[in-house]
Design a binder for these strands. Sequence first.
DNA 1: GAAGAAACCGAGCAATCACTCGGGGAAACG
DNA 2: CGTTTCCCCGAGTGATTGCTCGGTTTCTTC
Lengths: 204, 204
Amino acid sequence: MPGRTQPRGARRRDALLDATARLLDARGYDGVNTNAIAAEAGVAVGTVYHHFPDKQALLGALLERYGARLFATVAATVAAAQGRPLDDLVDAGVRAFAAFYLREPGYAQLWLSAQLTGPLREAGEQWGARFGDEFGALFSETLGLPKARAREVALAFVHAVSAVVTVAVARPDKRARASMIREAVRVGQGYLRAVHSPRPRSRR
Amino acid sequence: MPGRTQPRGARRRDALLDATARLLDARGYDGVNTNAIAAEAGVAVGTVYHHFPDKQALLGALLERYGARLFATVAATVAAAQGRPLDDLVDAGVRAFAAFYLREPGYAQLWLSAQLTGPLREAGEQWGARFGDEFGALFSETLGLPKARAREVALAFVHAVSAVVTVAVARPDKRARASMIREAVRVGQGYLRAVHSPRPRSRR
DNA sequence: GAAGAAACCGAGCAATCACTCGGGGAAACG
DNA sequence: CGTTTCCCCGAGTGATTGCTCGGTTTCTTC
């Protein structure tokens, strides 16, 4: 039980985030309201507002938790494949990405909502920047790119792969899903190859 | 004036879509409500519901109009560059894509919202499929891909490029925007190269 | 210009949502 | 046990939103 070492408040906060994630999965972004969150977590509405100043802060915290976990799994997977060809690293990374999306269906909803103009926009940009930094560092050493450029590449990479993976996991059919995930891998591989060698000598 | 040849109802419908697009731009997806649409268009709420069964249908119609225009401009741009190397075609196409996003800021909001689980989901998938068909036909002949595969590639292509362009146009600084658009171009080029020749012989 | 159809009006309804607040209960000290 | 501190409750509030409906205006057709 994680309840032992964690203080009481933090445990409740985590439980509220869990409940929100469950709702996000079941009812989508529009279906998530503070009353429903409280009900799902088995507490009163007042309790929600005892732990978070408002709805936006709660969703921001959830986005942060999602993001941290996503980066951790992807980074670990890539690290485990270190030394192998670049294409293999990308393959492993993108598949870890997709597996996370499949395991945590609410994440895509939040991430997408954070791209929209709205209350989550700031939190989304903050996480976008952080993704840029974290994956940027990874790309910087793997590809030998200057830091600033690596950050841009990482940002573009994450958004591009993320979009295709979102399409993939939305498909109910397993075969169709796997097929689109393969395309996501190719998007990632193709982009990094293009970054690595801007003008290939042959075009067929 | 287009008002002459167009029947009265269609003109009003278009005006309502225009008003919605303006609101989408100014206030984002959340800021769009039927009362505001009516006010922006200079009509009463009842009039909105005389032309559209509900809000969802209105947004669906706007998404369709956006999509048709986007495809038209991109296809025209690519057609004008026909015969040149693939990389140039992609460059022109993606830049046309970005220009459209910049010219019609509301589109990104709608497109993003249509990816979310919610009332627009169906309309979004429908348009995704149509993009797949239209661009798929374009890719099929340019790349010599079988129809079914071309559709998958087109879908992945549109989503990937779209995501990066969305990041780009959200940037206030012109330089930063241009830089990210370049990355979007590279994402498109790299992906199509990867599709065209799955395993390049060199990796450095 | 009469009659019918189509378009338009806008106050208001029902539902929903984020959030408040006054009070109660459990745990941690002495 | 008493007291302080933190945590929790949940009915209620005010604001917003999608949409309706009875009635008026504008167009079309003869």
